[in-house]
Design a protein around this nucleic acid. Structure first.
Lengths: 234, 234
DNA sequence: ACTGAAATTCTTGTCGACAAATAAAATACA
DNA sequence: TGTATTTTATTTGTCGACAAGAATTTCAGT
């Protein structure tokens, strides 16, 4: 009698369920594989991940807590929409967090932090070189997130990462128009920022971060302004 | 045959379960009814609220998302500890959010907002008058939260409310030593802040908020320094 | 054909049960 | 007596089932 494979399916380890679902859904939401407004069906997800609805639901509760999905009680749940009307609040918060985290990095970073930051910057530069807009968006976020980590303030890194996630979603909507000459400028600005952090020049870190942030915000606004005009025509 | 009460227990409405548990646990954690480090038992809570473990768990996932409880996978879950070692990161964030939210309130508030803010200030003043330290802590948080709301930036209000919650927890630990003459000074500072917001003086709002915040931080640090010395003696 | 009520289908919130993982207790052994 | 190992007990993660609401469809009456 031949041995029959008693567990043909990878058979997830106990306790990993919610994390798997959470991580994957999160990625799909941020990458717009699940665009804003997409309905989320619990049973469908349960079938897809081959598990019961219980861990699925817990993952959804987490995502809702981070504002990535909206849940109407007793009704449907869907991917959170992007609030274009109050976008300025997003920009305000983003610019401030750019500044604060960069300043704190200049104050509190250690030698190892710089290595990590430079590695991310290399990846960003490579993405620009390759004219890969999607990679630019992702690596840019990682770069600034690494700077924030070096600042070692969990309250700021928490908010900042959320903002970067939201920004990633917004930029994905428009990444087609991202292939102009500006990115090269961002690479240089990144290098300058690394330099001021390394030499612990807090005031200059604030100034450069602010300029860089406003640069990016301006860029995004330009993209949206273009699209807004399109909206008016429809 | 007499009618038998078919539903003697209030019989919660469907869908309200998690909210009830979440709200109550949250209050108990912030009021230190459940002090930091307290173990949280799912089945015990299930019995207490007379519901199954499923809604309890979803409430716990939410609380974990907000950092109010810590969950070790496959092991116990307990009320989050207060991180005294990195307290300065908390103060940094708190001061900045005081400033930012007050500034934004000066810019974007509407007439109705001022009414709400003044109402909270009245409650705070009453608490000071009554020398009710617990009420002071709560109403002070509400006051500043109301100001933040008037600033209308959900990213900032989100972080700020979290910080205020954490501060509420920390202060509860020491509220005994809160009955000196300083609170009256806070009342006056609050009045000044309301005034600058009303006249939309953004720069002055920033300045006053900063002074006020540093005042409070200094006060808290003094309390903790006293207690630290005690810790060393034990 | 159109409006409103009744019935049906679908989805969600909750439940009780079970098994894996861990902690605690009991036992064996040096 | 102290340490290692097995046994038991406790607690967590997951499951399948069921019932309440909401959405949809069916049907009746004008």
């Amino acid at each position: 009698m031949t041995d029959i494979d008693t567990s043909p399916i990878p058979e997830r380890k106990r306790g990993s369920g919610v994390k798997v679902v959470y991580d994957l859904l999160r990625d799909e939401i941020l990458d717009l594989v699940l665009p804003p407004g997409s309905p989320i069906d619990e049973v469908q997800l349960a079938e897809r991940f081959k598990m019961s609805r219980t861990p699925i639901r817990e993952a959804l509760v987490r995502l809702a807590g981070e504002g990535l999905i909206d849940t109407l009680p007793n009704r449907s749940t869907m991917v959170a929409n992007i609030d274009f009307l109050n976008m300025h609040t997003f920009f305000d918060a983003l610019v401030l967090m750019y500044r604060v985290t960069t300043k704190l990095a200049a104050q509190y970073h250690r030698a190892d932090d710089l290595k990590v930051i430079r590695a991310h910057q290399a990846e960003f530069a490579a993405a620009v070189q390759a004219q890969d807009a999607l990679a630019m968006i992702a690596t840019n976020a990682s770069f600034h997130s690494a700077i924030a980590e070096a600042g070692r303030n969990p309250y700021f890194t928490g908010l900042f990462n959320r903002l970067l996630d939201e920004g990633r979603r917004m930029l994905r909507l428009y990444y087609q128009s991202y292939d102009d000459r500006l990115p090269q400028r961002f690479v240089e600005e990144h290098d300058d920022i690394i330099a001021v952090i390394a030499r612990r020049d807090v005031e200059e870190a604030d100034r450069l971060a602010r300029l860089h942030a406003e640069q990016i915000v301006h860029q995004i606004q330009k993209l949206f302004a273009r699209e807004d005009r399109l909206d008016l025509m429809l």
